[in-house]
């Protein structure tokens, strides 16, 4: 059993931060904009980053809302079609249900001291996680770079993303 810092002196002689190349890479694809659908992406990305992994997230289709300035603070929980809802599904389409579900989830998240998506995005960008927008989705929704949060690294195509993610574990959420 050896401690991570109890190395032999020769190896520890010239250690630099560059001596920690990320050995694992994670590429997450976020394609949905529900509050309950984007949180897993953001939390997993943050956890992976804290574990020392190299992380990038590709926001495509409605997932683009998560990095859009005037949408990121208004993400809803979609209860329709969710089999885990505590109420009968036919009631879930009634007006106001998503507002109620969203406020409940936000309250729960605040209790657990999980930051809202906007702050999670800022945290991820500060931690060195790369955030990308999907070019096709940008065209489809008629958005420009100015509509996106400043934390977004760049807008790229899917092929660019897969080129960049060589050797990464790719997870579609």
């Amino acid at each position: 059993m050896s401690l991570p810092f109890a190395r032999d002196p020769a190896a520890a002689a010239a250690p630099t931060p560059a001596a920690h190349p990320a050995t694992r890479k994670l590429a997450l694809i976020c394609a949905k904009s529900g509050l309950d659908e984007c949180y897993p992406v953001l939390i997993m990305a943050n956890a992976a980053r804290m574990t020392g992994m190299d992380v990038s997230i590709f926001f495509t289709f409605y997932g683009l809302d998560v990095v859009t300035k005037n949408k990121v603070d208004k993400l809803w929980v979609n209860m329709v079609g969710n089999p885990s809802t505590p109420m009968p599904p036919f009631l879930m389409g009634l007006p106001g249900m998503e507002v109620m579900a969203t406020s409940m989830m936000k309250k729960k998240m605040a209790e657990l001291d999980l930051p809202p998506p906007h702050e999670m995005i800022e945290m991820l960008a500060a931690s060195g996680c790369k955030l990308y927008g999907c070019e096709l989705a940008m065209k489809m929704f008629g958005r420009t770079d100015d509509d996106l949060l400043p934390q977004v690294h760049s807008v790229i195509t899917a092929t660019d993303f897969f080129d960049m993610s060589e050797g990464a574990q790719i997870v579609f959420v």
Partner: peptide, 25 residues
Amino acid sequence: VRRVALGSGAGTEAMYQLFPPTPGK
């Protein structure tokens, strides 16, 4: 990490620079 970054005032980015590669651990 978040608590340290906010509480000590260092910020998330500095945490990753000061304590690479796994700031919390």
